[in-house]
Structures are given as C-alpha cells and as structure tokens.
Amino acid sequence: MDSLVVLVLCLSCLLLLSLWRQSSGRGKLPPGPTPLPVIGNILQIGIKDISKSLTNLSKVYGPVFTLYFGLKPIVVLHGYEAVKEALIDLGEEFSGRGIFPLAERANRGFGIVFSNGKKWKEIRRFSLMTLRNFGMGKRSIEDRVQEEARCLVEELRKTKASPCDPTFILGCAPCNVICSIIFHKRFDYKDQQFLNLMEKLNENIKILSSPWIQICNNFSPIIDYFPGTHNKLLKNVAFMKSYILEKVKEHQESMDMNNPQDFIDCFLMKMEKEKHNQPSEFTIESLENTAVDLFGAGTETTSTTLRYALLLLLKHPEVTAKVQEEIERVIGRNRSPCMQDRSHMPYTDAVVHEVQRYIDLLPTSLPHAVTCDIKFRNYLIPKGTTILISLTSVLHDNKEFPNPEMFDPHHFLDEGGNFKKSKYFMPFSAGKRICVGEALAGMELFLFLTSILQNFNLKSLVDPKNLDTTPVVNGFASVPPFYQLCFIPV
C-alpha cells in the first residue's frame, strides 16, 4: 500500500510540474494548442506526416506557434517570411542545433551535424575549407563525379535492359564520391566492405524516417530501456565508426604531411598542428563522427533524390523527352556531361530543381535551437528552445509555385524558357546551418541524371499514369515507394 501511495504522489508531482512548466512558459512563447500533461501535443500531431499537421496548425495559430513534445516546448516556423527572418536575418541567433537524443547517444555531441557552439563552428569551418581545397564546386571533385558517372552508366548497362530496382546502384554512385573525398578511394560496386557500408546507410535513412524515431526523440528514456529499431540505428553508426577508425589508422601509418590526399589526411594534419593548443576540438573521436556525418549527409540524401527523380521522369515521359532533346543538342553522344553545360541547359536545370522542390526530401529539416534569449515577432523565446522549420511550407508555397503539388519544371523557367532562380528554393535548409555539401549534391544530381539520360531511355513496367509517387515514409525524410524500371541503351 505504501508503495502505491508513493507512486501516486510521484505521478501527481510530475503532472503538477508539467502543468507549471507549460503555464509559466506560455506567456512568453508564441500561441499554440493546449498541451496535455506529460505528453504535450503529441496526440494532435500525425507522426506519419508531421508536415501536414504543421500546415493545419498554422492555419489556426499563424506562421509562428508553439507545440509541446512531452514536456519540451518547440517553436514552429511556417512559411517563407518566418523562416527567412529566423535563419537568414537572425542567422546567428537561430544557428543552434536542437535536442536530438538519439544523435546524442550516437555521437556524444561530436561531428558537424549535431554539434553546437565553438566545437560546431570550428569543425564546420575546417570541413568547408577542406572540401573547397579539394575542389568542391571546382574541377578536381567534378572529375571524381564524372568518373563515377561513367562507372554508374557501365553498371546500368550490365542490367541488359531487364527490369531492376535502382535503389542499390543509385546509392553506390554518391557513396563512392564521398569515399573518394574521405578515403581517396572508390570501391567496386561488388566489394563486400562497400556493400556493408551501403547497407547500413540505407537502413539508417529508413529507420530515421519512421514514426518510432519521432517518439524516441521526444521521450528519450525509451532509447535506453525499450527495444526497437533505434538500437539497430545505433549499432549501424557504431559499425561505421569502427570502419572509419580502421581507415584512420591506415592513414596514420602512411600519411605524407607534405601531400595530403583526402579529408582524413587533412584532419590528422590539423590534429598535429593543434596538439599544443589544448583542449582542441580536433580529436580522433571528432574525426570519426565528422566522417560519419559526411557519409550520412552525402550519400543517402543524394541517392534518395536520384531514385525519386527517375520515378518522376517515368511518370512524366514528356519531361524526359525534353531533357534528352536538350542533352542531344548541347552535349551530344561523344563526350561526358560537365558542369559548364548546365548554363546552356535551362530546361534540365529546371527539372533538377523541380525534383528537389517537389519531393521535399527533408520536410522539417533537422531541429534548430536559439543560442540566446531572443525577441522574435513580439515573442520571447528562451535560450536553448528547439525550433522546428517547415521546409515544406517554403518549397510548396502556392504563391511562389502555382499548383505546388504538381510536378512542373516551369516553376523554374521564365516566359522565355530561361532558368529562373527562386529564393524559396531551400531543399538544403538556409542560413548558417545550410548543408555543407550543397554544391557537391547539386553537381552530382546534374551529372548523374544527364549521364543516365544521355545513355538510356527509361521504360516503366506499368502505365506511367498508374505510377504512385507518394512517399512511403514522410517523417525525417521523404522516401519514394518501391518501383522497377528498364534502362534501355540509346
């Protein structure tokens, strides 16, 4: 009986604490739906499609509103004006990374994606500088992407125009580009180590996009005490870190300090320079996690976009025909596509942009946080508050993009057929937390897609009208449904 009384008292205290925290903070924060004790607004949000729920709530509470995930307040920004004001106009104040408990377990605050403060700034600055020195957006990395595009075309030829699921092959190409940047090595598509790495990356994007992960991140005790797919994700990350550590040891034994070959060499050189400046942010643990982040951000996002792009091109054969006509006119058949071609191919450029806009790969991006107490639109948001960005509300804005739910390359073309930029184009987020590999991803999408369409016609196994382009999961990332196609050599 005594234990029951204690339990009831504990629960009562928890409920009172929950109510007090919510009521004391709500006077400062933007308005929002009334949260339930302990669980907050979790029942009012469709976990399978958070973005749709945010759109519905914005119609009631406006472009800036507050939700509670458990006891934790989260300020939501919906629509271009609110997102721009926060991420661009007040970029420094909104540059923090929001709480992501599962990532905390995986990387302990290291790396480039989930770190904060001085650690994040130094690692991000170093990573950007190193990638630029190796030619991100310049010639040397373009050579690597072109080489991988040629290998991709050869792998597709091996399908002999038979029906195939493109998931694996389209994942190999961007993964190999990242391998060449980090390890100075590309792998054969049949290499077992490479296959294991690909498998872990593919599993992780599916797990991260599941409703279960949303629950884990908002009720963090689940991570330590409950079984579930989150444990598989943590094991996959541990596998990748151990693999990278092996490569780091190989580099330490063979590195030429006067001739760095890749990202690992550059990081080890930085560690050597910083060894007298303790404590340094440049450690082996930081290198492991930064490399894992580059793999995660640079492989599955690009391969998922490529997979979605081919599905949309199957669905819209008239678009595919126009792209192939432009390829034939500008590039021809006797040389590989290059980035200089893009400025002469406005329709193809528009298609690449429209694919990214339409699929809305990361509907709410990753959570941000404010780095200080900030007054925002007459609300006071306390330091450390998590900020949720609705990228969907920007990419699918119906004023900027008429009929935003329709796939239409003319969203990025003017009346004369010239490519038209849009400030609403934010597939990689915006501001200080914009994806480090934005330029690389854009290069890969253009070169891989043009190389495929230069060499193959795409054949659907069903009537294009019957192809479903609805994402199968739409949590962290929008993942396309399973499909097969035939690559018919031109």
Results as ranks from 00 to 15, higher is better:
E154I: 06
S127T: 15
L90E: 13
L388R: 05
V248D: 02
I45L: 12
Q214T: 11
Q356M: 14
H78T: 13
F110N: 12
P174Q: 05
V330W: 11
L11R: 03
Y483G: 01
S303V: 04
I222Y: 15
L128E: 05
V462D: 10
D89C: 10
L461C: 14
L461I: 13
N277C: 11
E253G: 12
P363R: 04
I123N: 14
F295M: 15
V38L: 14
L445I: 13
K119G: 14
G137D: 11
L17C: 10
G171V: 04
I42G: 07
L449G: 02
P363Y: 02
G109C: 06
E81H: 08
E272C: 08
K247I: 07
Y225P: 08
I387A: 07
D191G: 01
Q214H: 14
S220M: 13
V75Y: 02
M255N: 11
L380D: 11
C486V: 06
G431V: 01
R132M: 07
Y358V: 08
K84G: 06
Q146R: 15
G62H: 02
V490W: 07
V472T: 08
T470F: 05
Q484T: 08
R433C: 01
R186D: 02
R26G: 12
I207S: 05
T299E: 01
T450H: 00
E281C: 09
E326M: 01
V76C: 12
N378C: 03
P367E: 09
H316T: 05
S115R: 04
C266E: 09
N466G: 09
T386G: 07
L311P: 01
I112S: 09
E142F: 03
G40M: 01
Y308N: 01
F425H: 10
K119L: 05
A103E: 15
L461G: 06
E328K: 15
I387R: 00
D256T: 07
L9W: 13
K185S: 06
S51L: 11
F267T: 04
E203N: 05
G475A: 10
Q192D: 10
P367M: 07
N56E: 10
M406K: 14
I223H: 09
E415R: 10
N466S: 13
S162D: 09
C13I: 14
Q278P: 13
Q356V: 11
F134K: 14
E328C: 14
K273A: 14
Y424V: 06
C338G: 09
K270H: 10
P33F: 02
L208R: 10
E122T: 11
H78I: 09
S336A: 14
T66C: 05
N258C: 08
Q356K: 04
S220Y: 13
G171I: 02
S390C: 11
I99P: 15
I488N: 08
T392V: 06
S3H: 13
G437Q: 03
E318T: 11
E148R: 00
G79V: 01
T364S: 11
F295I: 15
I284N: 06
K190R: 12
I215P: 04
S393Y: 00
G109E: 05
C216H: 09
I207T: 06
P31T: 06
L391D: 02
C266I: 07
T385Y: 04
P30A: 02
S280T: 11
V355F: 06
Q193T: 15
P221G: 14
S58M: 05
T299A: 08
K420I: 10
V319Y: 10
F446A: 01
P227S: 10
S140R: 06
E199H: 13
S336W: 12
L208H: 08
K138S: 13
K423H: 09
S12Y: 09
L152V: 06
E104V: 10
T348D: 01
F482G: 13
C10F: 14
K432Y: 07
Y189W: 04
E122N: 13
R342H: 08
I141C: 05
F482I: 12
K241S: 04
I74C: 08
N455L: 03
G46Q: 14
H78S: 15
P227R: 08
F65L: 03
Y347V: 04
E154P: 00
V462T: 11
D293C: 05
H276Y: 12
I434E: 15
Q324M: 04
D373M: 02
L102F: 15
L17K: 12
P489Q: 02
I99V: 12
M406Q: 14
L449Y: 00
F126C: 07
D341R: 02
T392F: 08
P464N: 04
D188V: 03
V113R: 02
T320P: 07
N116P: 04
K158I: 04
L413A: 03
E285W: 04
S286Q: 15
E104T: 10
Q192M: 08
V479P: 06
R157P: 00
N133P: 07
S336N: 12
A86P: 02
D256H: 10
D397M: 04
R21A: 14
S23M: 14
C372G: 12
R132W: 06
L312S: 01
N289T: 15
D165P: 01
T302N: 03
A173P: 02
V479A: 12
G117P: 09
P33N: 02
S24D: 13
T392P: 03
K138Q: 14
Q44D: 11
S18V: 15
L461H: 10
Q214A: 14
V60R: 14
F376C: 09
V490K: 15
S95V: 08
N258S: 11
I223S: 14
E199G: 11
I331A: 05
S220Q: 13
D224Y: 13
Y347L: 05
F295Y: 04
F428P: 01
P480S: 02
N277Y: 08
L388T: 03
L43T: 12
W20V: 13
K52D: 10
R342L: 12
Q22M: 14
I182V: 07
F482T: 15
Q193Y: 07
S24G: 13
T320R: 13
L380V: 13
K28A: 12
H184D: 15
Q214F: 11
E148S: 01
F407H: 00
Q214N: 08
P489K: 01
R157M: 09
C164W: 03
N41G: 04
T305L: 05
F425N: 09
Y225I: 12
H276P: 12
V38N: 02
V352R: 03
L195C: 09
K206D: 06
C486G: 04
G442A: 14
S115A: 14
F401A: 03
Y189E: 00
P363A: 05
N378H: 07
H276W: 11
I389Y: 09
Q193W: 09
I205P: 02
S127N: 13
D224F: 10
T386R: 08
N259M: 05
T167R: 07
P382V: 03
Y483I: 02
K375F: 06
I39S: 05
S422G: 10
K375L: 07
R335G: 07
A149K: 00
F446D: 00
N133V: 06
G442I: 15
K185M: 04
I182Y: 04
L362T: 14
V323I: 14
K190D: 13
D408T: 06
L197M: 08
K399Y: 10
V75S: 00
R132K: 13
C338M: 10
T283S: 09
E81Y: 06
K241W: 03
S303H: 09
T229Y: 15
P35D: 01
F482H: 15
S390M: 11
G70L: 06
A297M: 02
I222P: 09
T130G: 08
I244R: 01
Q44P: 05
Y379S: 05
F110E: 14
L268T: 04
F94R: 01
R108C: 13
S286G: 12
G431A: 05
P166N: 00
L128A: 15
L208D: 14
D397G: 09
N334V: 14
F69G: 05
A369Q: 15
I488Q: 14
N258D: 14
Y308I: 02
S51A: 12
L36P: 02
L388A: 07
Q193L: 09
F401L: 04
D262L: 01
N218M: 15
P382R: 08
E147V: 08
K465I: 11
L440C: 00
L77Y: 04
T320S: 11
S343I: 12
G384V: 00
P382S: 05
